[in-house]
Amino acid sequence: MNWITNFVRPRIKSMLGVKETTPDNLWTKCPSCGEMLFQRDLEAAQYVCSHCDFHMKANARQRFQWLFDDAQFEELPFIPVAADPLKFRDEKRYPDRIKEARTKTGQQDAVIAAKGTIAGVPAMVVAQNFAFMGGSLGMAAGEAFIAGAERAVNDHVPLVLVVASGGARMQEGILSLMQMPRATVAVQMLRDARLPYVVVLTDPTTGGVVASYAMLGDIQIAEPGAVIGFSGRRVIENTIREKLPDSFQKAEYLLEHGMVDMVVHRHKLKETIARLISMLMKTPVSAAIAKAVAEPEGGALVPDGVEADAVPPPPESEPQAAQ
């Protein structure tokens, strides 16, 4: 096992965010079931475990590759913000933490916005990467989200948010909290322009992020098993002095409590999003949409019984829609 932890893991980590050709001999261990997975298969399966269906974390550029047609997209430029507005010091200097996160992820900050087409429908995707300081929401992330929304309005295209975040960037203090109203204003710009805003909640999405723009989607989607909630599990357990079940704050729990529209397997995300935004944008069904719906990417890998959003067959007596 030693060579796995000492050699393979760091290599895999260093690859995240930087597209490299994968050597043939790399394996990774599923954090959920412990199964050893062949790295190339795992990438082809969009980081979903082929044994237990666990959805692993993904970075922003992987999200773009999986959602945009032919993995083609245009990234919006990074918008520089005040580097350390509070001169924040805890055990490390904030700028040092940022530098580390940049090296680790190959991203300038937690959020990147990109433009492309999803099954032929032009769209913006904003992706928030948990690997960058826990996907925390600071000024740079706020600017990236706002820029994504402004570009969507400008180009008259829908915006899809794929989010993973532990919440606020504490090192930016109140300026981090202010990203909640700022991002909310960006959502309002989309709404004013009557553009669809689709949110995909992935593991984990918590704190201030889920209490603002990540909960304001026209459609709320969650990936299976994703932890989604406002307060941390331990904080709640301390408050109520009770142990919470494993299912607490999971995507399926939110579905049951009416907080999301659907739980969608990662292999069906593109198809689902394409279907939704093409209808909301009143885009005629194109060959690309038809193809995406007929052949969902990686669809063959979906084990039986995991489609959480199976559509019931129409009742026999239901009259067909007029026109």
């Binding site: 909310t184 309002q188 209490a211 603002s212 406002f230 307060s231 409590h257």
Partner: peptide
């Protein structure tokens, strides 16, 4: 906000987001 089970069950995050909105 109250960090209890009832808050999560009934969507405190959504409620805060909508109130801000």
């Amino acid at each position: 906000a109250y960090p209890g089970l009832v808050s999560e069950e009934r969507g405190v995050a959504e409620a805060i987001a909508r109130s801000t909105d």
